[in-house]
């Protein structure tokens, strides 16, 4: 389906798809029909008016499609040639294939029967689209945890989670009151009130290791007053592995061999990023973190030399 619903090609495409849809939904409400096709009602009337003029060569009432929609309900007759739905486009097939791959992984363990049916659909669609198992989706999010949290949000329930904090490298148990999922770049976050820190936090969904429903959600007013500490401003000198460094530190603009500046709320994050850059960057400031890095690295070096 083209982005602009008004271009001749996207209208033609829609009209061709309208015929089989109407054939199987005789008497459908015109407004609902418009919604199903994601167009305005007036656009739908224009489409139906155009379709009314089409049919088999001859174009007498005998050959033209017989459409009626004056009453606000739409019926179609004499449209046998176009009555079967059109084949899927490649994009449509790919969308369904990737979606099905994810559905298979989201189904509970004890529903092997459904997994088998979904896999059968994948095989049929792959053949149809000439894409024998060429696309794979591997969520790094545990879909059963996601399903549980989604249901908790809609039922207004609190959830007990085990969460891996990456920078402090600790797994903690927290009781949280989830409000919504948010997406930032490649990652998905859960926005929730956390009892442990008595405030709102966002949690990376792929770092939620376990989740269970723990009771009803407490209604909380989201306060915008955050108790966030002041950010740390740091500067770096980059020597090599420029793409790795730019991605790790999330630097937007970086020339080669250049000085870069950034800010962070976590000194642990900064320390770990500089260490993990394995000598490709030098932290020039702040001095305390720089000294800390030197001490950590030389302590480790001594251990390796000893052992």
């Amino acid at each position: 389906m083209a982005k602009n619903p008004q271009t001749p090609l996207s209208r033609t495409s829609r009209l061709l798809d309208l015929v089989p849809y109407l054939t199987s939904h005789q008497g459908i409400d015109l407004n609902i029909l418009a919604q199903d096709f994601s167009v305005s009602s007036s656009q739908m009337v224009a489409d139906l008016t155009t379709l009314w003029m089409c049919g088999l060569p001859g174009y007498t009432p005998l050959e033209l499609m017989d459409l009626s929609f004056d009453s606000g309900y739409v019926t179609i007759h004499n449209a046998d040639t176009l009555a079967r739905p059109r084949n899927l486009t490649i994009e449509e097939a790919i969308a369904l294939l990737l979606g099905l791959d994810l559905v298979v992984q989201s189904l509970p363990q004890d529903r092997e029967d459904l997994k088998e049916i979904a896999q059968g659909l994948i095989d049929r669609l792959s053949r149809l689209a000439n894409l024998p198992s060429r696309i794979r989706i591997e969520p790094n999010i545990n879909e059963s945890i996601r399903t549980l949290i989604t249901s908790a949000i809609s039922k207004k329930q609190a959830v007990k989670i085990q969460y891996h904090s990456l920078y402090s490298d600790e797994v903690t148990k927290r009781n949280i009151h989830p409000l919504e999922f948010r997406v930032d770049g490649a990652h998905e976050y859960l926005w929730a009130y956390c009892e442990k820190v008595a405030g709102f936090r966002s949690f990376r969904v792929d770092r939620v290791l376990d989740a269970t429903i723990s009771g009803p959600r407490v209604e909380l007013i989201q306060s915008s007053a955050s108790k966030a500490a002041d950010p740390i401003t740091y500067s770096l000198e980059v020597f090599s592995r420029f793409r790795d460094v730019a991605e790790r530190f999330a630097l937007d603009e970086m020339g080669k061999g250049s000085q870069s500046r950034g800010t962070s709320y976590s000194s642990q994050w900064l320390l770990r990023c500089v260490m993990a850059s394995a000598g490709a960057v030098k932290l020039t400031s702040p001095q305390e973190i720089r000294s800390h890095i030197a001490a950590t690295a030389s302590g480790l070096l001594d251990r390796y030399k000893a052992g």
Partner: peptide, 15 residues
């Protein structure tokens, strides 16, 4: 692929 997925769904519903 939201719009492709939705148009695919319409075709399936047309069955």
């Amino acid at each position: 692929l939201d719009s492709a997925a939705q148009s695919a769904l319409l075709k399936l519903k047309s069955m």
